[in-house]
């Protein structure tokens, strides 16, 4: 299972990187979102998958899933959410101010 998940994380990274290399801001933000999904999947895969019950203590259970990666991912999800929403509003404002969402056109004059 872990190998399949690694491959899936790889595919998410591929798609994310491809989108980041595009020109339009919205595509780039989609790329970052894909990347963060990939990273989260990566973290949970690095713990052990499907070993024991959810990490909520209850009588008679001795085998739980690793709680630490879950805590890390939870933090990471919230942070990437904050960043993504900031990026989205930034994209909106960029388009409003500059009239373009094309990064190539936003790079300024070559002859500066």
């Amino acid at each position: 299972m872990e190998i399949i998940m690694s491959v899936l994380a790889g595919i998410l990274f591929t798609a994310g990187v491809y989108m980041i290399l595009q020109k339009q801001i919205l595509k780039i933000i989609i790329g970052t979102a894909l990347l963060s999904h990939g990273a989260h999947l990566f973290i949970i895969t690095m713990g052990k998958l499907n070993r024991g019950k959810p990490p909520i203590l209850s009588e008679g259970v001795t085998n739980y899933a690793d709680p630490l990666p879950q805590a890390l991912i939870l933090t990471s999800i919230v942070i990437s959410f904050g960043v993504t929403s900031f990026l989205l509003v930034l994209a909106y404002r960029t388009y409003q101010t500059n009239g373009t969402d094309n990064m190539e056109k936003l790079r300024g004059n070559d002859n500066e």
Binding site: E2, I3, M5, S6, V7, A9, G10, I11, L12, F13, T14, A15, G16, V17, Y18, L21, G38, F42, T45, M46
Partner: peptide, 18 residues
């Protein structure tokens, strides 16, 4: 090429570290 290389590398790192 770049994105597939990144993806393959991430997969390899994942498998190797596991």
């Amino acid at each position: 090429v770049i994105s597939i290389s990144v993806g393959v590398l991430v997969t390899m790192v994942g498998i190797a570290s596991h």
